[in-house]
Design a protein around this nucleic acid. Structure first.
Length: 571
DNA sequence: GCCGTTTTCGGCCCGACTGTTTTCAGTCG
């Protein structure tokens, strides 16, 4: 059993208890226990076996008992009873932005509404406004929230699809009938959200491959199964499509199924102009239909007079213009990254000690790591007072004296307050190694207000980078409406780097903004915004965004060596 | 539900905003 499963169970219990109306501290206890398990390095089953569960802070008698029962029997009586009391479907309602446990409970208890569709009906038919505490605007907001959610449901975050896709690939590699295999589709293009996972293989025995494919242990059900295409749904409800082609068509099929649609339309047009026909089976002579190439993707681009185009660039956003001239950017690689400047420690709302973060950074092959905890007014995240900053600086100094091959920087993720003033006075910002700034409160603003607020923050002379510039949360919160060009100009004028936040539900800036910023002459920093050691591995997702935004090594601050970085930030 | 060098019971959780009200409950980060 996986740690995540246990954590999810505890999260669900917490949600159900919330709807039931339990006191805040009880549900929080469940959530904190879930978090602890989620970020655990060790296997939870092993911990149970060794009877060390209660050694984990935040897990006491009651929760450990439930975990043990769940692990040993695969079931939890308490959870089953709870579900009888509170319909499980209500949990989905909690995901609607603006709806919390109290409102969901009121909707269920008074109107007996259990599904999102029924809820939308009730809102449209003006049935909700009669409930105490509800009104016209609430109805409108609920409908808006449902729309926002529907826009993104059916799409998974990149990290989830990436995990599933790569595990499936590893499984398929064991099939001896498969000659070549690759991820395709939006996952190969590394889009920030993924509809379904596409996998392409070449084989002379398609039926045997399909048999092997559907026997994967995480398959929940098989949607369709044929000799060229099979679709399954995984346990986590993500759909995976497998296509099998002959070896001589592998490259052309990979090109075709990687997309994007817009890229393919364009490339087929180029093929026609040159007297060819391109489809998933190969590149053919338009007149004679003679097969020319198709085994490898690279030879297709070559034959069409194009430089090879990396999957991340295949969106018809100008890549052909550059490929013709052999002038595509040399895209940034994950190995170019030398450090991470946005990691939270247990000084604020992170889970980890700075020593452990430093250790992990070394394992990731970094030359430096920057601890950027929250600033003083963000009390909920245990933002640091000036006094605690001083303590932390001394702590980091001691660590730096002790460890080798890694430099730990003491930074901050300083709040940009409503008026654009930063949450620390200049005398505090001055003594830190670097300053990241970001918005964490007062999200409702007009475009003009938001733009002004951010620019005012950027203009502070001690600022190094702007964290998660648009504050979007994929599926949960829209990006700010900003005059992004003004922000880019201000950042450039003040030598402020724009963050690409690698956290999978942020990925902020997004690919389009990154490209736009690059065209503007801006520079970037790619950070993880980690709160646990595992999060530090999210760097690859930020790198994907950067690549989709056409960034090269030189565009990114944290590709610099330690010596170069110290020169830039004045460390 | 968890925790404990003031404690085995009483803290733990802060501030702002929104939409509902006419002083405040619910939601969010």
């Amino acid at each position: 059993m996986k740690n995540q499963q246990v954590a999810d169970l505890l999260y669900e219990i917490a949600d159900l208890l919330d709807i039931k109306g339990e006191i805040f501290f009880k549900t929080r206890a469940y959530r904190m226990a879930a978090q602890k398990i989620e970020v655990l390095d060790e296997d939870i089953e092993k911990i149970v076996e060794e009877e060390k569960l209660k050694d984990i802070p935040g897990i006491g008698k009651a929760i450990s008992g439930k975990i043990i029962e769940y692990i040993k029997t695969g079931k939890l009586k308490y959870f089953e009873e709870l579900k009888k009391e509170i319909p499980e479907d209500l949990l989905k309602m909690l995901k609607i932005p603006g709806l919390g446990p109290k409102k969901v409970s009121a909707i269920y208890k008074n109107l007996n509404i259990k599904t999102i569709d029924k809820l939308a009906d009730a809102a449209r038919n003006k049935k909700l406004r009669d409930l105490e505490g509800f009104g016209e605007i609430t109805e409108l907001n609920i409908l808006r929230g449902i729309n926002l959610m529907k826009k993104t449901t059916g799409r998974s975050l990149l990290n989830v699809a990436d995990f599933d896709g790569n595990h499936y690939i590893k499984y398929l590699e064991k099939c001896k009938h498969i000659k070549k295999l690759s991820l395709a589709g939006s996952l190969r293009r590394r889009k920030d959200t993924i509809g379904d996972i596409d996998i392409l293989v070449s084989s002379d025995e398609p039926n045997l491959v399909m048999d092997f494919f559907v026997k994967y242990s995480n398959v929940q059900r098989v949607l369709l199964k044929g000799a060229t295409k099979t679709s399954v749904i995984l346990d986590d409800n993500i759909q995976v499509d497998l296509r099998v082609v002959e070896p001589r068509s592998f490259g052309s099929a990979l090109q075709y199924f990687t997309g994007s649609k817009e890229h393919n339309v364009k490339i087929r047009g180029i093929a026609i102009k040159k007297g060819y026909k391109l489809n998933e089976y190969g590149l053919f002579d338009k007149k004679t239909e003679e097969y020319i190439v198709g085994k490898d993707e690279t030879e297709i681009y070559k034959k069409l007079g194009l430089q090879y185009i990396e999957p991340e660039l295949r969106e018809n956003r100008g890549e052909f213009k550059y490929a013709v001239k052999n002038k595509l950017p040399v895209l940034l690689k994950k190995d170019d990254i030398c450090g991470d400047l946005h990691v939270h420690s247990d000084y604020s709302d992170g889970y980890e000690k700075i020593e452990d973060i430093a250790d992990k950074a070394k394992k990731l092959g970094y030359e430096y790591i920057g601890i950027a905890d929250h600033s003083q007014s963000l009390k909920i995240a245990r933002g640091l007072s000036e006094e605690r900053i001083n303590k932390k600086m001394k702590h980091i100094e001691r660590i730096n004296n002790k460890i080798k091959d890694l430099k730990v920087f003491c930074g901050t993720e300083c709040d940009i307050k409503k008026d654009g003033i930063l949450d620390y006075p200049d005398k505090v910002l001055k003594k830190l190694d670097y300053v990241g700034i970001g918005i964490h409160t007062n999200f409702k603003m007009t475009e003009e207000q938001a733009t002004k607020r951010i620019i005012k923050g950027i203009e502070n002379p001690y600022v190094t980078f702007l964290a998660h510039p648009t504050c979007r949360m994929i599926g949960r919160r829209e990006a700010f409406e900003l005059d992004i060009e003004q922000i880019f100009d201000a950042a450039k004028d003040n030598n402020v780097y724009l963050e690409i936040n690698s956290f999978p539900d942020r990925l902020d800036l997004n690919d389009l903004h990154v490209k736009q910023g690059k065209d503007h002459g801006n520079s970037f920093v790619i950070n993880t915004d980690s709160h646990s050691l595992e999060h530090m591995e999210f760097m690859c997702f930020g790198v994907s965004v950067a690549r989709r935004g056409w960034l090269e090594k030189k565009d990114v601050l944290n590709t610099r060596s330690l010596t170069e970085l110290e020169k830039i930030i004045g460390g």
